[in-house]
Computed example of a mutant assay.
Amino acid sequence: MQLDLTGKTALVTASTAGIGHGIAHGLAAAGARVVVNGRSQASVDAALATLRQALPNATLLGAAADLSDAAGVDTLLAALPAIDILVNNAGIFGPQDFFETDDGTWDHYWQTNVMSGVRLSRALLPGMVERGWGRVLFLSSESARNIPADMIHYGVTKTALLGLSRGLAKRVAGSGVTVNAVLPGPTLSDGFAAMMEDERARTGKSLEVLGREFVMANRPTSVIQRAATVEEVANMVVYLASPQASATSGAALRVDGGVVDDIV
Rank of each mutant, 00 (worst) to 15 (best):
Q2W: 09
G7R: 05
V12I: 09
V12P: 00
T16H: 11
I19M: 12
G20M: 11
G31T: 06
A32E: 05
R33E: 14
G38F: 01
D45H: 13
A46N: 03
L48N: 06
T50K: 14
T50S: 15
A54S: 14
P56H: 10
T59F: 03
L61N: 00
A63Y: 07
D66R: 12
A70N: 06
L76G: 00
A78C: 08
A79Q: 15
D84T: 00
I85T: 01
I85V: 03
G91I: 05
I92S: 07
F98V: 06
T101S: 12
T105E: 13
D107C: 13
Y109N: 04
W110N: 02
S116Y: 05
R119G: 02
L120C: 04
A123I: 11
G134R: 00
G134L: 12
L139F: 06
N146W: 14
P148T: 10
A149C: 10
I152E: 06
G155N: 04
G163A: 14
L164H: 08
G167K: 05
K170L: 13
S175E: 11
L183N: 05
L188Q: 04
D190Q: 12
A194N: 14
E197S: 14
E197K: 15
E199L: 13
L207V: 02
L207P: 00
V209S: 12
F214R: 12
M216C: 11
R219G: 01
T221K: 07
Q225M: 15
A228S: 08
E231K: 10
E231V: 09
N235W: 00
M236Q: 09
L240R: 01
S242I: 13
T248Y: 08
A251V: 04
A252K: 05
G258R: 07
V259W: 10
I263L: 10
